[in-house]
Nucleic acid binder design. Structure first.
Lengths: 202, 202
DNA sequence: TGTACATCAGTGAACGCGCGTTCACTGATGTAC
DNA sequence: TGTACATCAGTGAACGCGCGTTCACTGATGTAC
């Protein structure tokens, strides 16, 4: 039966929330449309009133999950002035690793995105750029812009790789899983110190 | 009909080759057993004479692909004494990015492995350790062992992340795709220089 | 070396199953008067 | 404000399809004598 305009919006958001969480947990191909609809309290047929296909749902859900994630991060940061190392600590924490469903969609899906269409690729690129920009704000203004950009791009890339690997090896080798996060944090910190104007360049 | 022992081995190898390449190209869930068998010149039924299930095939194929990759890398290195930067250039090149099917299985599958069983996770951990050890040999002996290990772990993690991201954004933003590889290379080089004993630690 | 027979890798039809998608239908909502 | 009707989000059965897996059968290989 027909539902109120308000309810339509609520249902669409519920579908995007469910899809976003499920594809992070079980992957794009491992998530079915019926599962998504059920999680949102609807039947699978209703999904096609909001999205023309699974592909469209996935593209929108990926972006939705990313926006929610950024918003949550901004809320967590609040009014504090966080430094580069503070961001690294947050992004590379074991809490983040444990939260596959709610954590960074880029880390959860990185290697699957290359096989998707241009739309999903564009969402990923936009999400990546936003994360880079956020991290750049934590870098000292005394550092040349080019170096700030370079360090931020490399750090976000490294974070995504380290998180994916930390999760991949965890079932077999918990110590290695921790080591990957720790080593990445330390090496990025070293690179940061090296690029700070207080440290002389050779 | 029955085939010679020699042919049995050839067929099993062909199945592993096909599976290894296909899962890198289309993902674990995106690859069907019939497709793998056909690529190896067999019918799907024959596959079950070699592997008890798709899961077993995937675990063995992942390891097989990795071993082939390491062997190819060693052959490429040959007798040369390569430095850390030489390895980075090779691992983070656009040639590597283009060769999804034949390139590093860890970069192609990183975020999917966390959803697999303990067997695949163990294969991944072992493969990761081997790559780390290979990279460690390129680092100066004058650098403390602990720092060599840390840098190698972070560098392989970063490489895998950068390669996955470079592929993920490529369809939408080729320039960003290149930038990710370049920035990762440069920042890791900086971290390396910083940790060399010739550079004073603060 | 030659013969008889057991072995088993490979074939291809068939299985149940869950997938994404479609569609006739329902009935509360929103709208026109 | 009240009534009549068009709209359309949601339902659930049904669709074709490809999946992983099984199995009776085939026939060349390997082995026992």
């Amino acid at each position: 039966m027909r539902v109120s305009k308000e309810q339509v919006l609520k249902n669409k958001t519920a579908l995007l929330d469910a899809a976003s969480r499920l594809i992070r947990r079980t992957g794009i191909e491992g998530t079915g449309v019926a599962e998504v609809a059920a999680e949102a309290g609807l039947t699978h047929g209703a999904l096609y009133a909001h999205f023309s296909s699974k592909e469209e749902l996935v593209a929108e859900a990926f972006w939705h999950g990313f926006v929610c994630n950024i918003a949550a991060t901004r809320a967590w940061v609040g009014d504090r002035k966080l430094g580069f190392e503070d961001y690294l600590d947050g992004l590379l924490s074991s809490d983040m690793r444990a939260d596959l469903e709610g954590g960074c969609p880029m880390a959860a899906l990185a290697s699957e995105i290359g096989r998707q269409g241009r739309g999903v690729s564009a969402s990923f690129a936009k999400a990546f750029e936003q994360m880079v920009e956020m991290l750049e704000t934590s870098l000292e203004r005394t550092m040349p812009a080019k170096q700030r950009r370079r360090l931020a791009v490399a750090a976000i890339s490294a974070e995504i790789g380290a998180m994916a690997i930390s999760r991949a090896v965890r079932k077999a080798d918990a110590a290695l899983s921790d080591e990957v996060l720790q080593a990445t944090k330390e090496v990025l910190t070293t690179a940061h110190e090296r690029q700070r104007p207080t440290a002389k360049r050779s």
